[in-house]
Nucleic acid binder design. Sequence first.
DNA 1: GGCTCCTTTGTTAGTAATTAACACTTTGAA
DNA 2: TTCAAAGTGTTAATTACTAACAAAGGAGCC
Lengths: 252, 252
Amino acid sequence: MKRERIEEIAEILDKRGKMTLEQLEKEFPNVSQMTLRRDLYQLEEDGRIIRIRGGAMSVKEVQKVSGEAYTKKTTINTDAKIVIAQKAATLIDEGISLFLDGGTTAMYLSKEIPDINCNVFTNGIAVAMELAQKKNINIVVVGGQLMKDNLSTSSPVAKAYFDATNFELAIVSATAFTPQNGFSCNSQIESDLLKQVFQKARHVYMMLDSSKIGKINSYTFAHIEDIDVLITDDNFPKEYKALFEQNNIVVM
Amino acid sequence: MKRERIEEIAEILDKRGKMTLEQLEKEFPNVSQMTLRRDLYQLEEDGRIIRIRGGAMSVKEVQKVSGEAYTKKTTINTDAKIVIAQKAATLIDEGISLFLDGGTTAMYLSKEIPDINCNVFTNGIAVAMELAQKKNINIVVVGGQLMKDNLSTSSPVAKAYFDATNFELAIVSATAFTPQNGFSCNSQIESDLLKQVFQKARHVYMMLDSSKIGKINSYTFAHIEDIDVLITDDNFPKEYKALFEQNNIVVM
DNA sequence: GGCTCCTTTGTTAGTAATTAACACTTTGAA
DNA sequence: TTCAAAGTGTTAATTACTAACAAAGGAGCC
């Protein structure tokens, strides 16, 4: 009974693509709305449909729609981050010990990073999961409380990790930068963690796309002179570039 | 302004897969809910996301989910694990402090777990990412070296975490069990970690699907008498059930 | 600068869909 | 038969959504 009905719903949805609950009710006149809802719920769990407001949509339909979208995907800021990440990936040498933060740019970097023998510390669990696909990279996750908004961990306890740890290189990014306020982010514990990282790392590379410039966030964790290399995109203002170069920082 | 924000939303969604409006509001604290709604509406028109009740989902995620559904069918014991996980989920009370391991069964459990106010420690990053979708659950990730085969972390350093920590409850699973050799797994550091957890936890619930029975792995971390509750499936042999019950263990 | 138009954003109230909770029914096994 | 478990229907309460209007910001023009 139930099984048959669910199959039938799945078939109809595959055929029509998208349907409202109202339409489904007409299709199954002697079944209550609630039951149909529950059927949709189960189909969603099986991964066969996506429930949308007022009804459901078959997965096939989604793939059709998304196929259209992928062709016209020419985004601006994502591109900048990817370019930055690609550049940064070329700077990672075999056998190095490296710290990577948990931000979006680090996420792109972890996709671009070659599968070389190296040691990566990170506080981003999404970054860690991405890196886990590369078989030669050894990953250490910094533990602590998980912040749900950016999927990164940090806690005072995490500092204990670093006492016995050194990095050849730290590649981090900030969510805001001004010359006066330096590099800042919006979480105090993350800021503390990064300060610690800056102390332990021999070299620090900063990934900063131009949209971050001129913004100020609550917690500054570093200033211009603390970094060695700045990796940015083409829209980076020239006057800022000069400013960094005055401090012997390589701008890419 | 608008363009940038929309790009950023798309990025975050690609990274996280699925998000509620509430989570998006946290991500963009100085933008109204309505604006975010309108952004999502536009992203949907562009075919980059699917709006679902309470938020949105990236099309990438949809493809992932539908892919999973296929592989799900091929694996055999998944059903038993899900049933076990569902049962375990009902045993978690509001306000509890809980340890969860990083295994597949724990992964299913984290999907089934209700969104109640509680504190979860885990060494599984896939588990952590799954739990991050529940807004009331506080998550602490145990740091350490990441093992790529099961996406769980463990290291001697992780033990430092537990010195100041107590759990009301630990829900763990083993990869092998015999009455003589007890519960065992194939990683020494994981075994060490679990031993530590057993010491710190007031109650221990073991999730063990029947396929694990009669197998022996290298490292034993607990014996029958160490656990309080055993959660298993219908194929669990009756003679074993009696054995557990002799030790005052509740078998579910 | 001051003025307009137009786009973007915020606020509110009203509507619609969803979930939760309970009661009833069916099914299948002991 | 009797019991338990799964499925279904109904209602109430919650939650998300839309619509409509008001306010704020920008670009262009005089």
